[in-house]
Design a protein around this nucleic acid. Structure first.
Length: 463
DNA sequence: GTTATCTGTCATCGT
DNA sequence: TGACGATGACAGATA
């Protein structure tokens, strides 16, 4: 504490009782540093008295350290030394009535230091603003995305439709809300479907288990060969409809429609097909198709022409090919116990069992993936909100810091002026003023003020 | 033709 | 041990 940086005014606490204390002014105990030293002009003038009191009031600044020295300046902005101690401390020349420190500081420090800070702050502010704008944009975008994905009206509508479309001929009436109309598909699709050629070997077959379960059988591949991925459009050959004319998104839309989650008609579908598709979806009658299957399809052709059978998903086609005797919704959505019970009600081949289990796994995983993505988006939105809040908090703290720095600089400036004024009133025995370069004011813990020569101070510090 | 996005699927891990 | 959910990674489709 005996030695502080340039910021500390030459008010140093003595280590021990000083030899020649000098009383500066009445009312304030100030032993003379030199024998016989006395204040110049015994009757203390009011101005000095007030000045001294002000100085005393600021005496705690003797131990004040500039905060900028204590922490990482680079974290916010680089700080110049806040107060130029021109003429004090180590200064060599000093006039009897120097310009006030505040004048110096106002010309140097404030302009030289803070004038540099303010732009930095403004710069940050600009950045923050830009960041906010960007983040807000993204946030809005994502919020829109998330909210759009929900499509509550569609969901409610579909759920209503699902509930009303519960089914015919199944032994167990499923209570799952998610049971979609497609559950009414005649999986055994006998008759017309008897000659249905599986497209599994012709189309994308990414759904096939690649080792996690036994290879699937298909009419074309009874042994359960695993064809590689192929384009859906590369060769769809359906006898049960115009599926070969279906686009992938149509198939997906159908597949999505069987999803048990809220995003029945995905945002993508909405974007891709627009309101017409949505209305079509909403207005789809879920009627019995020409084959008697109750299906819904947002791509149904207008009335009057042969209705387009719902584009079957790959698993649906496989199930059809292998004559799985229950709907996919049940395969996917039934609890494991009910599912196992369902399996016991039928005698299924190994291929059928494998397919059913794969369908169940894929169906659940599809839902899980959708939920996972939804959560991810929500998480991103949440993090962006948090980021915005932290940006705001940082800016607020930076502003607060700037204000404190201004405040501190002002106080130091004022202290310097007071210090100068006190010295201007001090006179030695010969009536000569004490040089502020040679002496400094010290305050002891008991509150007494001493005028201490720097040489003595050096020795005291050395000891 | 390139790129971004969406979606389904698989593999893997943890419960 | 199997079922299941979560999630990263990948691939295909599409705008």
């Amino acid at each position: 504490m005996c030695s502080t940086a340039n910021y500390v005014l030459p008010l140093r606490r003595t280590c021990e009782v000083l030899a020649t204390p000098s009383r500066v002014c009445g009312g304030v105990p100030m032993p003379s540093t030199f024998p016989g030293a006395r204040p110049h002009g015994a009757p203390q003038d009011t101005e000095m008295d007030v000045a001294w009191q002000e100085l005393m009031a600021l005496s705690e600044l003797q131990e004040f350290e500039v905060p900028g020295e204590g922490y990482e300046p680079t974290q916010y902005q680089t700080m110049e030394p806040m107060v130029s101690m021109r003429g004090y401390g180590t200064a060599q020349t000093h006039s009897a009535s120097p310009p006030t420190a505040c004048e110096l500081i106002s010309a140097d420090t404030y302009n030289g230091c803070y004038s540099e800070e303010v732009p930095v702050c403004h710069h940050q502010g600009n950045n923050a603003e830009a960041t906010y704008g960007h983040s807000e944009y993204q946030l809005n975008e994502r919020m829109h995305l998330v909210s759009s994905q929900a499509l509550p009206s569609l969901t409610a509508h579909r759920e209503q439709m699902n509930m009303s479309g519960n089914s015919q001929g199944h032994r167990r009436a499923s209570t799952f809300f998610s049971q979609g109309p497609s559950q009414h598909m005649q999986w055994t699709a006998h008759g017309q479907n008897s000659h249905l050629r599986s497209a599994d070997d012709l189309e994308s077959d990414s759904g096939l288990s690649l080792g996690s379960s036994p290879p699937l059988a298909s009419p074309d591949n009874p042994a359960g060969g695993v064809p590689g991925r192929q384009s859906l459009d590369s060769g769809m050959t359906y006898s049960d409809g115009d599926a070969d004319g279906m686009t992938e998104h149509a198939r997906r839309a159908h597949a999505t429609s069987s999803n048990t989650q809220a995003d029945a008609l995905t945002l993508r579908s909405v974007k891709q097909h627009g309101q017409a598709a949505v209305l079509n979806y909403m207005n789809s009658d879920f009627g019995v198709s020409s084959r008697g299957s109750s299906q819904y399809n947002i791509y149904t052709k207008p009335q009057g022409s042969a209705s387009i059978p719902a584009p079957l998903s790959r698993d649906e086609r496989r199930a059809t090919s292998l004559k799985i005797p229950f709907p996919m919704e049940k395969i996917i959505n039934l609890p494991v116990d009910d599912f196992n019970e369902l399996l016991t009600q039928y005698t299924l081949t190994d291929s059928q069992l494998a397919l059913v289990r794969d369908i169940r796994r894929r169906g659940k995983n599809k839902v899980a993936a959708q939920n996972c993505r939804k959560r991810k988006l929500e998480s991103i939105v949440h993090l962006e909100r948090e980021l915005n809040q932290l940006h705001g908090q940082r800016e607020h703290l930076a502003q607060e810091r700037l204000e404190f720095q201004h405040s501190l600089a002002f106080i130091k400036c004022r202290l310097t002026d007071l210090y100068t004024e006190v010295f201007s009133h001090l006179r030695d025995e010969a009536g000569q003023p004490y040089s502020i370069d040679d002496y400094s004011l010290q305050q002891t813990p008991d509150g007494k003020i001493y005028l201490v020569p720097h040489t003595t101070m050096s020795k005291r510090e050395q000891c």
